[in-house]
């Protein structure tokens, strides 16, 4: 699987749900490559911008698309790592802000 193939597959399944890939193509391809790297490392696509534990059950909330995406895109127009954004975010209709970590620390510490 290549980042390009992953891009096409996810675009088809995610856009109808209102989640668009960031217009910054370089960032998106970098993040998709990182998801493939994490898939190889851990056996699941752990969020590239969070510290994975290697335990699938413990990391269930940060397997991409993470459970925090919905609230982050609703509030900021972007998920935590910037892979998925809203239409408005991509069109510059809302400010591009830093998205703080929504994941409770306890989930990380296990």
């Amino acid at each position: 699987m290549t980042p390009e193939k992953l891009y096409q597959a996810l675009k088809k399944s995610q856009e109808p749900k209102g989640y668009f890939f960031n217009r910054d193509r370089e960032l998106v391809m970098d993040l998709l490559q990182a998801l493939l790297t994490n898939k190889q490392r851990y056996g699941y696509m752990a969020c590239p911008c969070r510290l994975a534990s290697g335990d699938r059950k413990q990391d269930a909330d940060i397997i991409c698309p993470c459970v925090y995406r919905e609230a982050d895109v609703a509030e900021y127009g972007s998920c935590y790592c910037g892979l998925y954004v809203s239409r408005e975010w991509n069109q510059g209709e809302i400010p591009h802000q830093y998205v703080p970590e929504r994941r409770p620390l306890e989930r990380l510490l296990g």
């Binding site: 970098d30 994490n38 911008c49």
Partner: peptide, 9 residues
């Protein structure tokens, strides 16, 4: 940092 994180890069 994390080696997989674009913002870290």
């Amino acid at each position: 940092a994390l080696t997989t994180c674009s913002h870290c890069k």
